[in-house]
């Protein structure tokens, strides 16, 4: 297979190179650039508006919100479905008696009684 690539640069192309500039000319060009840039730089120094600040924070804000949502979702996933679990009231508590007589178990129960406790209290007449 013949290599079609022309690897040699043209020697004559050197005549198109830029002529060296004098130090004075370089300084003048630099001065012109900086003078023309002054209003643009000045504009950049003014205090940013409310919307510019808001726009500047939009991207990191969205990222932070996404991360927070992910963490929240993960926390919910690992702690169940988020509903509060009800501790069952032991039957002993329901059937407990005191010196002063029977105290309605459903009134003295610390936790909300479950269905079994309510049925037991009703059957023993200790629910009132």
């Amino acid at each position: 297979m013949v290599n079609q690539r022309e690897e040699r640069p043209l020697d004559e192309l050197g005549v198109l190179k830029a002529p060296p500039r004098s130090e004075e000319r370089r300084r003048a060009a630099r001065g012109r650039i900086l003078a023309a840039a002054a209003p643009l730089l000045q504009r950049r120094r003014r205090p940013a508006s409310y919307w510019e600040v808001l726009a500047g924070w939009a991207r990191p804000g969205l990222a932070a919100a996404s991360i927070a949502l992910l963490l929240l979702a993960a926390a919910l996933q690992f702690t169940g479905n988020g509903e509060e679990t009800v501790a069952p009231v032991p039957l002993d508590e329901v059937l407990a008696t005191s010196d002063a007589g029977r105290v309605p178990a459903l009134l003295v129960a610390i936790n909300e009684p479950d269905a079994d406790a309510v049925v037991a209290a009703a059957l023993t007449g200790n629910g009132r």
Binding site: A29, L34, L41
Partner: peptide
């Protein structure tokens, strides 16, 4: 942020090569 000195440094670094490329 509008720093003139910093912009001047960038100009110093790139202006000669920029001129040469533009001349090309």
């Amino acid at each position: 942020r509008g720093d003139r000195e910093a912009f001047g440094k960038l100009v110093d670094r790139y202006s000669e090569q920029a001129f040469a490329v533009a001349y090309g």
